[in-house]
Design a protein around this nucleic acid. Sequence first.
DNA 1: CTGAAAGCGCTTACAG
DNA 2: CTGAAAGCGCTTACAG
Lengths: 354, 354
Amino acid sequence: MKKTETELTGVKEIARRANVSIGTVDRVIHNRKGVSENTKQKINAIIEELNFQPNKMASLLASRKILTFAILIPAVSNETDYWSYPLNGIKQAAAEIKQFGVSVKYYFYDLDSKNSFNTAADELLNSEPHAILLAPSFVEESIILVKKIRDLSLPLAFINSDLPNQDNLTYIGPELYQSGKLAAQLISFAIQKSDKVLTVNISTDLENDHHLFRKEQGFKKFFDDAGKTNELLTLNINETKLVAVEKSLLGSLSTNTAIKAIFVTNSRVNIVAKILEKHNKKDILLIGYDFLKKNINYLLSEQITFLICQRPKEQGYLGIMALYKYLFKISEVEKSVYMPIDIITKENYQFYNS
Amino acid sequence: MKKTETELTGVKEIARRANVSIGTVDRVIHNRKGVSENTKQKINAIIEELNFQPNKMASLLASRKILTFAILIPAVSNETDYWSYPLNGIKQAAAEIKQFGVSVKYYFYDLDSKNSFNTAADELLNSEPHAILLAPSFVEESIILVKKIRDLSLPLAFINSDLPNQDNLTYIGPELYQSGKLAAQLISFAIQKSDKVLTVNISTDLENDHHLFRKEQGFKKFFDDAGKTNELLTLNINETKLVAVEKSLLGSLSTNTAIKAIFVTNSRVNIVAKILEKHNKKDILLIGYDFLKKNINYLLSEQITFLICQRPKEQGYLGIMALYKYLFKISEVEKSVYMPIDIITKENYQFYNS
DNA sequence: CTGAAAGCGCTTACAG
DNA sequence: CTGAAAGCGCTTACAG
């Protein structure tokens, strides 16, 4: 249970071999200046030879570092509890690394308000964190923030959606195109040749919601590749209110009675489910996104058949851990981590820990 | 970046308030004997009041503890690379906790040989580990080992399969019954009323492979509950050689031409896929278990449609981390952790990190 | 450019 | 039953 006494490692041993003090060894280890090139090389050679790995616990303890990570993500809203899952993952990670002197500060913005994003971003920067986790929902605003973060050379992790070429440490989230293909594959099992399939995009900001179209592209690609000839229709709805969606949707369905499957490109699939339920359309296969309570309820009542889900909790958890691993030099951090694309049904949702 | 100087916590502060030495405080914290009831209570009161949490890093550093975890799992075999996934998860966890003085020792057994299990188990015990991770594939042999482990009061984690009432710290693995239900649900989307469905159990030790039957029960339950009247057939094959399986299977298929879907209750689904491919039966929906290379290949060629998978890598990872969290008192450990039941298809296998 | 000393928050003998 | 001292493997001023 005790370490063997004979081990000759650590800064002391290096200092002994190099004939210097441990202070100088420490300077070399951390690349601090004020060491002659000569002794530097001598020490580095010994470090190599001994394959020396500094004891992280001792280093942490001695340095008394206390780091703060700032996170900026959407607030949990009435409309959706989606963001509670990443938040839970973040909290779990925060609890695990608290003992290493990391504290996490939370900033939230309203998905309906770019202003709230900017305000929260300013507060975040004022708090002078040592690392940042960001869900960059508003693209332009995020890019402005990212620029400031870059000027401070702070490590930055994106979750949930990516911004290209932003020098961020890592992105952890979904690959949208492929999830659209998967949705198409699932639908393809259950439909006949003559059936039509409807894709529904619902967003108050359709123009900027390129995510939805990326999924739709993947969706169509699958049918193309598979040589399926089913007619694929698209319905873009620029509102999220039930009545508006209802009007649009019923219009489509009445002119296209052969629609046998609907793909909703985001978590608003519960709105469509509600409408289908109301009008007693049980025979239409419905598939959408995200493990939300509302969606799960329709999974149970079988109005929704499949939900595609990309581990929101794990995104938050891994985002924080990536910053931690980077700052504490625990391990390398991957530039992009694409989440598995999970399929949730009535028969496996119980064990999905989001 | 530095901790505030004014914080008055830690053993020193407790000692100061209680008017004792830090040695005595340490004795109380760790419930060691040799402290008068009086001072013990006094110190405990202060600990309560200060909500004192010992600094794990300092404690680890000072105690110079070096713990070894022993794992006993099946070796990766020619027949299946399944066990490479839990092993990878274990190795990942081992790398992460190495810095906390934990080393992991590996023992492997041959799934064809109970003898090899017993030999490896003996070696494991001789190495005097501080905690054990076990995949208890052989039930009786495992129970004997578990008894010895219990006598040594070592923490024990099961992965992959459970043994009831064994006082183990935790079980991390699948819930079989529900995965059978899921398989049935997936099949139900793609079949017609008149179609027959075949369940295939393949094992050299069918009698003791209660896992398979548990899945089959769940499978049947789904059809029952859903009021589906499809005829459900079962084929038990007591051999794993291709020719034997081929003979049995072709027999079934020729007498029941209405079979439109096959559920293989374990990872040997690739054997069935090979046979179906050989005999050009593309129209039968095939579903089975596990993210093995062989199985993925048939997923790609569309001979297999769905694979059900229960995160073998994560099982290994979580198993080790559970022991770590328990011994280092990081957090509570759950008695049973059921893995999510993942559905793998041609369109999402790329992002499944097993 | 370098060294010696103090200290991080604990644990561990040892002495009484 | 209790205390004083040394030490874990580092980092951090401070002095030269």
